[in-house]
Design a protein around this nucleic acid. Structure first.
Lengths: 217, 217
DNA sequence: CATTGTATATTTGTATACATACACTTGTAT
DNA sequence: ATACAAGTGTATGTATACAAATATACAATG
C-alpha cells in the first residue's frame, strides 16, 4: 500500500464535476449526441469553466465523449460493435486480472471480497437492483486491486465506465441476478484457494454471460 | 473513415505541449521522479499554464506521470513488475487486434502495411535503428486501425507510450532487428490472407519475444 | 540537542477576462 | 426565389490574476 494518495484528488472540484458528468452519462441524463457546453455545466454546478474543462478532458480520454476542435464536446454513443469489442476486451483483461488476483491477493483483500459477496447474497434475496449494481462494481474493482497491476486496474476501471449502462440493464433481469451471484461466488472461491486458472475461467464465463444477456440495443 | 477530426486537436497548443512532454519522457530527457512544474514548462515553451495543465492531465491519464494533489506532477517510474504486466496485457490485446485486423482489414490498409514492411526491410539492411523504431510504431498502429475497434486502438496507443523506451532498447540489438523483421512479415502475411488465428499467434509471439529480449532494467 | 510551531515561499487549484474560430442568420444581388 | 457573402452570436482556446494548500526553513521552547 502506498502511503500517498495515488493520483485521485477526490476533494477537488474537477473531480466532483467529472463524477457528476460521468454518472450523468451512465444514468442516461446525458444522452448520446448531447452537447456538453462548458459554460452551462459550470453555471449549473456553480463553478468556473476551468474544472469543467478538466473533467471533460478526462471523459474524452475515457472515450465517453468526443471533442471536436473549436466546436465542443458531444456524448459518444457506443455502437453495437463497440459494445461487442469492449466485451471481448473485458473478457481478456478481467480473466487476466482474476488470474493475477488469485496469485497475489492479500488476506485483507480476501476479506473485503467475501464481505461483498455476502452483501450480494443479501440484496439478491431482496431483489434490490440498485445496491447490487454498486456491489457488482465493488467486487470487480476489488479484483482489479488484488491483481496488483496498476495498468490493468486503470484500463478496466476506464472501460468500466463504458459498460455501466449495459451492466445496469443486464442486472435488471431478476433471473440474471441470482445466476450472477453464483458466478461471483465461484470467482471468489477460486481466488480464495489461489487457483489462478479457475479464477480466470470463471471470470471469463461471467463476463461472457453478462455480455450475452445484454438486451437488444 | 469518419469525416470529422476524431478528437485529437493536433494544431492546438495543448497538443503540442503534450507531445513535447510525452517525447521528453520517452527519450529520457525527463527522468523518473522528476517534478514537472507547470510554470517552468510554460515559460520554457512560451505558453501559458493552461495548455500545460491539459497536457499534464493527459499524461496522468496515460499513467506516465502521477499527480499529487496540491503538490505537483512527477514522472512515474515503471517498475520491472509493471513492465511485465504491460507486456502480458499487450500480449493479450495485440493478439486480439491482429485477429480482428485479419478479419476486417481493407485493401488500402493492406497496402499501407505492405509498404511499411518493405521499408522495414530496407532500413534493417542499413541498420538504421531510428527509422526502424518509427516504422515499428507505424506497423502496430496500422494494425490497431485495421482492427476496427476504437477501444483497442485507444488502449494500445496509450500503452504504447509506456513501452517506447523498452521497444527502443530492444530494437537496438542488431540481431533482434532482423528477427523482428521476419516476425512483422509473418504477421503481415497472415493478415493478408485473412488468417485470423495465425495473425493472432504470430503477433503474440512477436510481443512475447520483444518483451523477453528486454535488457536488464 | 531535539522537537514543535510559525512564517514564508513555492506550486497547484480556481476564476475570469480576452482572443479566435466556426456556425448560423440575414441581407442583397442575380 | 435562390445563392452567396458578410456580419453576428456562441462556444472553445488561451492567458492571467488570485486563492488555497503544502513544504521548508528558522526560531523558540522543552
Amino acid at each position: 500500500m502506498n502511503g500517498y494518495y495515488e493520483n485521485k484528488d477526490y476533494g477537488s472540484l474537477s473531480e466532483k464535476v467529472y463524477r457528476f458528468l460521468r454518472d450523468g452519462i451512465a444514468e442516461g441524463r446525458y444522452q448520446t449526441g448531447d452537447f456538453l457546453v462548458e459554460m452551462k455545466i459550470a453555471e449549473e454546478l456553480g463553478v468556473s469553466r476551468t474544472p469543467v474543462r478538466e473533467a471533460l478532458k478526462q471523459l474524452e480520454l475515457e472515450e465517453l465523449v468526443s471533442s471536436h476542435p473549436n466546436r465542443g464536446v458531444v456524448v459518444k454513443g457506443l455502437s453495437t460493435e463497440d459494445l461487442q469489442d469492449v466485451s471481448t476486451i473485458r473478457h481478456l483483461l478481467e480473466g487476466q486480472a482474476a488470474y493475477w488476483a488469485a496469485e497475489r491477493v492479500t488476506e485483507e483483500q480476501l476479506k473485503a471480497l467475501k464481505e461483498t459477496v455476502e452483501l450480494m447474497e443479501f440484496y439478491t434475496a431482496k431483489n434490490d437492483v440498485a445496491h447490487l449494481v454498486t456491489l457488482d462494481t465493488r467486487f470487480h474493482e476489488l479484483i482489479y486491486e488484488a491483481s496488483g497491476s496498476r495498468t490493468i486496474r486503470h484500463i478496466l476501471a476506464s472501460l468500466h465506465q463504458n459498460i455501466r449502462k449495459a451492466r445496469q440493464s443486464s442486472l435488471t433481469m431478476p433471473a440474471r441476478a441470482s445466476n450472477s451471484l453464483a458466478e461471483h461466488l465461484s470467482i471468489y472461491q477460486a481466488i480464495e484457494r489461489h487457483d489462478a486458472p479457475a479464477a480466470k475461467e470463471h471470470m471469463e464465463a461471467h463476463v461472457a454471460i453478462a455480455a450475452g444477456s445484454r438486451p437488444s440495443e
